[in-house]
Structures are given as structure tokens and as C-alpha cells.
């Protein structure tokens, strides 16, 4: 078997050594069934142990290994080398985020946003566990299920130019998650969440570029969640204006 190879051009940045990121090239063996992450692991294990990146489950569900692959945000565990051959592959940290090192981005800002939208079931009155589950029909489950598939991989933030320009924008994943709880038949907290997501830095920042939904590896549709929230807010306001007594 002749050893076929493929070139990976990887962004390197170590604060202690480098003033700015630069590109380092690596030759890795080409395998039909390798993903970009396998190639990175090959670099780390065999060629250069100093390369840093996040990864874990290598089956597209933990959300750690999002990077830019040839300019597109991708989960590197499901981006196959064969789809980029025979060209070279450019691997960069996710766009729009500060870079801690090499391919590792700072996601602490996202964690704050996630907390700010209160992504948990809010009830006026909790039902004791001894009284059993809240009934929820398959249709009621279906209403929010799609929005519950987010793995927080941040590809959507990387694809969103609004977030790139306005880093305070709460952004696609966090808003979609808030919407997921709003739609949950067990939840009674949408007004509390909407106070946050329809405030400054919330849904109005979005101008519907729509790329967040295009790049989502789990087929969540954050763009739809955001637009629907806008419509709901406006119709709620109109209702409140026409029928003031219906307001809380």
C-alpha cells in the first residue's frame, strides 16, 4: 500500500511565544475513513505534541471539537478527509471567538449567555415527585423537541456575522434553547425568559442572515426560533395594546 498523504494547514497560537496566530503545515497519512479530528490526533500523537484542541466523544454529540475547516464551521469528528481531497485542508479555531491557544477558543461568554436565558423548567407551583410525571403527549413533545437537540458546539455563533460584530448579542444557540423551554408544555416561565431575550442584545439584534441554521450539525433551527420570537413579541404587544386587560 503506497502511503498517500494530505496536507493540513493548522492555525497555531501560543500567547507565551507568538504575537499573532500563524499557520503550520503538517503532512498526515490519508485514510478513506478518517475525519479531520483523526488527522489532528495523528499530528498530536506522532508529529507535534504541542498542538492543542478540544475533543472527546468523536461521535458528534459532546460538541467539543468545533473548528473552521476550509472556512466553514464544522464538527471535526464528522468532517471526512475524503471530502476535501485532493486539496489541502485549512483548520482554524472557530471564528468570532477569542483564541486561548491554537484551536481552543474562549467560550466562557457563551456560558454566561446560556445561564442568562434561564434554561430550566420554571413553574408557579412545583408538583411533588410523589404525584408522578407531568403528562405530555407526543405532539406536545414534538413542539419543542427539535430545539432541544442543541449540543452547544457553537458552530452557529461562528457562522453569525452579527455575533462577530456585536459580541454581546445573546446569539442563536442560547435563544433557541430559551425558546425550547418556552414551547415546553410543562413550563410557565416564558415571560421571565422573554424579558431577557427580547431586551437589548436579544432577538432584535438579529437581521436574519440565517447561516446559524445552515451550519447546525443537529438540524436545530435557531434562525426560526429567533424570528418566531420576534413575531410573538410583536403580536403580544399588539394584543396588549388592543386588549389592555389581557396583560399580566
Amino acid at each position: 500500500m503506497s502511503e498517500e498523504t494530505i496536507t493540513l494547514n493548522v492555525t497555531r497560537y501560543r500567547h507565551e511565544k507568538d504575537r499573532a496566530p500563524f499557520i503550520q503545515s503538517y503532512q498526515v497519512p490519508y485514510r478513506e475513513d478518517w475525519v479531520v479530528l483523526d488527522a489532528l490526533n495523528h499530528i498530536k500523537d506522532e508529529l507535534d505534541g504541542t498542538l492543542s484542541y478540544r475533543w472527546s466523544c468523536r461521535m458528534g454529540v459532546c460538541g467539543s471539537c468545533g473548528m473552521m475547516v476550509n472556512g466553514e464551521p464544522k464538527l471535526t469528528c464528522s468532517a471526512f478527509l475524503r471530502d476535501y481531497r485532493p486539496g489541502e485542508i485549512r483548520v482554524e479555531p472557530l471564528e468570532n471567538f477569542p483564541v486561548i491557544r491554537d484551536l481552543v477558543i474562549d467560550m466562557s461568554g457563551f456560558m454566561d449567555k446560556l445561564t442568562s436565558v434561564q434554561p430550566w423548567i420554571i413553574r408557579e407551583k412545583e408538583k411533588p415527585v410523589s404525584e408522578g410525571e407531568y403528562l405530555q403527549t407526543p405532539d406536545q413533545l414534538d413542539a419543542y423537541q427539535q430545539y432541544s437537540q442543541c449540543i452547544n458546539c457553537l458552530l452557529c455563533y461562528s457562522a453569525c456575522p452579527i455575533f462577530g460584530l456585536e459580541t454581546d448579542f445573546i446569539g442563536p444557540a442560547a435563544i433557541a434553547l430559551a425558546y425550547r423551554y418556552n414551547l415546553d408544555s410543562r413550563d410557565e416561565g416564558s415571560h421571565r425568559r422573554n424579558d431577557v431575550i427580547t431586551d437589548v442584545n436579544g432577538v432584535w439584534e438579529c437581521t436574519f442572515v440565517g447561516e446559524c441554521s445552515v451550519v447546525c450539525p443537529k438540524h436545530v433551527d435557531p434562525a426560526a426560533a429567533i424570528q418566531k420570537l420576534k413575531v410573538e413579541t410583536v403580536s403580544g404587544m399588539v394584543r396588549g395594546f388592543l386588549m389592555p386587560w389581557s396583560r399580566k
Partner: peptide
Amino acid sequence: NRPDNSKMYHPHM
């Protein structure tokens, strides 16, 4: 624990 802002690279659009 948060990464130190001054020790990160901040990209620009």
C-alpha cells in the same frame, strides 16, 4: 476560572 482576556488573541471581523 476564566481565561485571561489579555492573554488571548482577539480576532477582528
